[in-house]
Write a protein that binds this DNA or RNA. Structure first.
Length: 580
RNA sequence: GGGUUUGUAGCUCAGUUGGAUAGAGCAGUGCCCUUCUAAGGCAAAGGUCGGGGAUUCGAAUUCCUCCAAGCCCA
């Protein structure tokens, strides 16, 4: 199906050509001033210089050559050379119905397999506000890409190989020093069941981490355990497996609340099997050199203004680093999942690190095919002082603490509702409302910018928020529930055309969101559509409308809007409600 | 010190390849529930687009310079 703007672009391109301006890139856009038109063409302004003519004259030439058609109405020229026009109502009504049918159809597959690396939670550690962005943005990008026809898989990519693992092992040892895991001479099978519960695991890391900050000896001990684990000490590895297993369950609970559904639950340690091979490949093929005892790969390019620090393969102690693991992971993703593109949804602060990794991949030709490596960075969640957000006691705020805060606010609000809900309904509704507030607040700012963490903002249910969108859906739904199906043809009323025009802008929003990996475009669109609907809602009486033709048309629009809003929220991975 | 990002209303943010009167939300002001959920709608108010210079018919947007802040690497 040809989109309206494409149809218009074609007509205008022909008109320009007929008027003697042979240009291929004639474009039509939204009219900046509403009363002048639905759309406008600014091309005369751009062409003035080339043709040595005033834009106003060009615009009039074009207007005279505009062919007769059933779309464009009341085309006028405005100073200094805009061509403004309206779209015919009957045409718009027909187009809208076709358009909405088209949107429902599944897209043609793009044959592109994309792996999205988001999440990044650390095993044994609770999720904090910093994890919110990656989960929200990553999940939305995944859904948007899928909608556009890509074959997408999401990988949570857990941090399962760091110091925190040593801390938990230490905590277990402290509690049960006589478990077989700690007996170096033990050669038998280790128990299948973990020696701790989910609840116990939750408190292990925070308590040891706190103590290690003050206790130098304990800190050393933990480092040593971590080292021994990474060297493959049997008992520790067995215990480590238990920690991962229980930890995954805990982490999944949190991600489920945010609607972040990962296809893969891999972690840093899973690429370990490729690590030695990768190191050997880089060294053997002469891509690396030794500098101050460390093995590095120079990745600077001639066009760089300043030198980019080298990629570090092995440190001076001969140990693999975070960057090495990253390289091995990319190799793993090529071999095991055969991807065409990898998208990293991570904090902006990691940009240099990924630039180094990507360059190293390219320089060493370590991949068999050309995989597109994309860094999709997001801004840091900062506190009111502009620095990364910390609670009063100096820790990052826990995700669950934040959720509880928002939820209690939602509970308060829902309990006040005129509609008498049961306790169970109140519980469910406030849950959905709270999560929508949290996610929408996070998603609606352009991802690349740092943002100030503001509890009140996340708890806000008015204006440009998730609950506003949900509320709009429930209003629409309430009308639909109270009306019977009427069989009349859809005719668009003059007073409702703004809502219709808003509905057909969906394609632009998704396209932008997809191309720029920026879900905020969907938020903006959903908000403006909801806004338009609420204006429509306030102006019209729908279920009491006596003219059946009008009534039917308005009900149809209500239904279209509801579906569209739900579609947007689904792309953002935000659940909606029928009643609230 | 090098790199990088940012500076738009009191606060939090939008602002398409330069284009008409720089837009939203929150807070504050005034209206609107005897009709579909007021978590809403309508109206007004709020700005030297960090400062200065340059290019242009035309700059929040491009270039230069200065100021301030964040982050990364040292």
């Amino acid at each position: 199906m040809e989109l309206l703007v494409d149809k218009l672009n074609k007509i205008f391109t022909k008109a320009f050509c007929d008027a003697g301006y042979d240009e291929s890139e004639i474009k039509v856009g939204e009219c900046a001033i509403e009363k002048f038109g639905d759309f406008q063409c600014q091309s005369p302004l751009f062409l003035a210089k080339k043709y040595h003519k005033a834009p106003f004259i060009i615009a009039n030439d074009v207007l005279a050559h505009l062919p007769q058609n059933d779309m464009i109405q009341n085309a006028t020229v405005a100073n200094p050379g805009y061509i403004n026009f309206f779209v015919d109502n009957t045409f718009l009504a027909k187009y809208l119905e076709e358009y909405l049918q088209e949107v429902e159809k599944p897209r043609k597959p793009t044959d592109k397999k994309v792996l999205i690396d988001y999440g990044g939670a650390n095993c044994a550690k609770p999720l904090h506000v910093g994890h919110l962005r990656s989960a929200d943005i990553g999940e939305a990008i995944k859904r948007i890409s899928k909608f556009m026809g890509d074959d997408c898989i999401g990988d949570v990519h857990l941090g399962d190989w760091g110091l925190q693992m040593g801390m938990v092992i230490y905590a277990v040892w402290e509690k049960h020093p006589d478990l077989v895991y700690f007996d170096e001479n033990y050669t038998g099978e280790y128990p299948k069941e973990p020696p701790f519960s989910m609840e116990e695991l939750k408190v292990m890391y925070p308590s040891i981490s706190q103590r290690a900050k003050e206790d130098e000896i304990l800190h050393e001990k933990v480092k040593q355990i971590t080292y021994q684990l990474q060297q493959g000490r049997r008992g520790y590895v067995a215990l480590w497996r238990h920690i991962i297993e229980v930890s995954k369950k805990l982490i999944k609970q949190d991600y489920d609340k945010l609607n972040a559904n990962f296809d893969l639950w891999l972690g840093e340690s899973d690429s370990k099997k490729y690590q030695d091979e990768v190191i050997e490949y880089v060294i053997k093929n002469g891509y690396s050199r030794v500098s101050d005892g460390a093995t590095i790969v120079d990745i600077s390019l001639p066009e760089d203004k300043t030198e980019i620090p080298p990629f570090m393969l092995l440190n001076s102690a001969g140990a693999a680093l975070y960057s090495t693991t990253e390289l091995a992971t990319i190799v793993q993703r090529e071999r095991e999942f055969n991807v065409d593109e990898i998208i990293y949804v991570v904090d902006n602060r990691q940009e240099l690190h990924f630039t180094q990794v990507f360059r190293c991949v390219k320089k060493t030709n370590i991949l068999k095919k050309n995989i597109d490596l994309k860094f999709v960075g997001f801004g840091t969640m900062n506190g009111p002082d502009g620095k990364p957000y910390k609670t009063r006691d100096g820790r990052a705020m826990g995700l669950n603490d934040l959720m509880d805060m928002v939820k209690s606010k939602a509970l308060e609000k829902v309990s006040q509702s005129k509609i008498g809900y049961s306790q169970e309904e109140i519980e469910n509704i406030s849950n959905v409302v709270a999560i929508s507030a949290l996610k929408f607040a996070d998603l609606c700012v352009l991802r690349t910018k740092d943002l100030i963490f503001d509890v009140d903002k996340f708890c806000s249910f008015e204006g440009k928020t998730g609950p506003y969108i949900l509320y709009t859906i429930t209003r629409a739904n309430s009308i639909l529930a109270k009306t019977e199906k009427l069989s009349k043809d859809f005719c668009l009323l003059e007073e409702d055309r703004k809502l219709a025009l808003s509905l057909i802008k969906f394609t632009d929003a998704v396209k932008n969101a997809y191309e720029k990996s920026a879900p905020s475009y969907i938020c903006d669109y959903a908000y403006s559509l909801a806004n338009e609907f609420n204006t429509f809602y306030a102006k019209s009486s729908i279920i009491y409308e006596e003219n059946l033709e009008k009534k039917y048309s308005k009900i149809m629009l209500t239904n279209y809007t509801k579906n569209m809003l739900k579609k947007c929220m689904d792309l953002l991975a935000i659940n909606t409600l029928e009643k609230m």
